[in-house]
């Protein structure tokens, strides 16, 4: 009696496990389908967005070659460089802003602290680019909307408001034991020294996380770049370039190149993202263990 019960429980468990794994496999396929699709398309030899079969009829590397050599209409290498330069500046400036503000919010006590936190929360409720037009006019008024100043303008736009996004780093700093700070103060350290010599060295995961997120922002943003660059194709970032390739006049000849470009942008971003994920998890776990 008892044995049969365990046997039937075993089969039941086996069946439910099988169902779960099959479901997970199906879901994983659905989730990975677009990625798989774009990789296939980037090697597709037939041009145009119209396809008649899932797998390409013949494979080629020409799409990648054309993406990096055909610079007459859509200059992808230049877009790539533009984005890279902007991203590097963003990473440095935004990280500095975010880390300073987070440290102040977490460790220093001053009159404007709570009001500032409330302000940051309220600002977060406005639609992000509601002010976009206004920012554009402000940049125009200080002469940053033309020519090579567009790059400076984009850097300013991406970094300007970054100080308001301090929540995650503040949460991390909150986990560093205050006793460490107090010990340093007893040894005669100033607050600045505590910040640079105690807090920063203990915060590697969150620093890497902050740098990576701010580095990725210009690669992922589409709308700010579009409003600020307008028609000036010389200063396009990759996201506008890829968007352009799918416009009606380009899609037929550029669709497969778009896929190649998408792969080129996605691979570094995906690697950074997965690296960042580990840092994020580590950061959430707190600074000093035990």
């Amino acid at each position: 009696m008892r044995k049969r019960e365990t046997a039937s429980a075993k089969t039941r468990r086996f069946i439910s496990n099988t169902i779960v794994h099959v479901c997970l496999a199906v879901l994983a396929v659905i989730w990975l389908f677009p990625i798989f699709w774009v990789i296939l398309t980037s090697f597709r030899a037939e041009k145009g967005s119209y396809v008649s079969s899932f797998f390409p009829k013949s494979y080629t590397l020409d799409n990648y070659k054309r993406l990096f050599t055909d610079t007459t209409i859509l200059n992808f290498p230049q877009m790539f460089m533009n984005t890279l330069i902007i991203a590097i500046f963003c990473a440095v400036i935004s990280s500095f802003f975010v880390l300073s503000v987070s440290y102040c919010m977490s460790r220093l006590r001053f009159k404007m602290r709570k009001p500032f936190m409330n302000l940051a929360m309220v600002l977060g409720l406005f639609p992000g680019f509601m002010s976009m037009i206004a920012v554009y006019y402000i940049l125009k008024a200080i002469g940053l909307s033309e020519g090579s100043m567009i790059r400076v303008a984009l850097i300013l736009v991406y970094t300007g408001g970054s100080g308001a996004g301090f929540y995650i780093a503040k949460g991390f700093f909150d986990t560093i034991p205050k006793a460490l700070d107090e010990a340093a103060y007893l040894d005669g350290a100033t607050k600045f020294q505590v910040f640079t010599k105690v807090t920063i060295p203990l915060s590697k995961p969150i620093i890497v996380y902050t740098i990576l997120t701010s580095f990725m922002a210009p690669w992922l943003d589409f709308i700010f770049a579009k409003v600020i660059c307008r028609a000036d194709a010389k200063y396009y970032t990759v996201s506008i370039g890829l968007w352009k390739m799918l416009e009606k006049e380009y899609i037929d000849s550029w669709y497969t190149c778009f896929a190649a470009g998408a792969v080129c942008v996605s691979i570094p971003i995906a690697i950074l993202f997965i690296a960042m994920q580990n840092m994020y998890v580590e950061g959430m776990a707190g600074a000093v263990k035990g």
Binding site: F96, F97, V98, S100, V101, Y103, C104, L108, F110, M112, R113, F116, A120, L123, F126, M130, S131, M132, A134, V135, Y137, I138, L156, V157, T159, G160, G161, S162, G163, A164, T190, K191, F192, F195
Partner: peptide, 23 residues
């Protein structure tokens, strides 16, 4: 220290977030 560290980020927020919003 908060004045030193907050000055630039806060100016950035004022110029690129608050001012455009008011505008």
């Amino acid at each position: 220290l908060h004045k030193l560290l907050m000055f630039l980020p806060f100016t950035g927020i004022c110029v690129f977030t608050i001012l455009p919003l008011i505008y």
